[in-house]
Amino acid sequence: MRFLKFFILILIIFNFNLVHAKTKSLDAKITKNLRCLICQGQSIHDSDSEFAISLKTLVKKKLNEGSSEEEIYNYLKDKYGEWILYDPGFSKNTYFLWLLPLLMFLIGGAIILKLFIYKKN
């Protein structure tokens, strides 16, 4: 019973906060994925440099013109190189980046499995 009361309490708390739930805008999503060239280590979204401000304007403009997220990324990749994207796509440069951790996971699983099989023999 005590737990039930607790759940209800949690539900109430969350429902209060639902007031703030709001659609995250696409341009924020895009600018968060772009790396600023002036303060290199910050995203465009977080940066207030002149370059970042212009790029934010440009992303909004492009979205209004009907460009898709992918098109904007390709456009900027063309201008500034792959470096500008925080999300490295899956390409010949990044096969290892994406697959190596997953490979490690599989190897780890195999080693653990081997411990059990070893025991059975």
Binding site: W83, L85, P88, T94
Partner: peptide
């Protein structure tokens, strides 16, 4: 000699 950035989306996805 290619430069890329690895940022939050990579870590989140994996």
């Amino acid at each position: 000699s290619e430069k890329i950035s690895v940022g939050p989306p990579f870590y989140n996805k994996l």
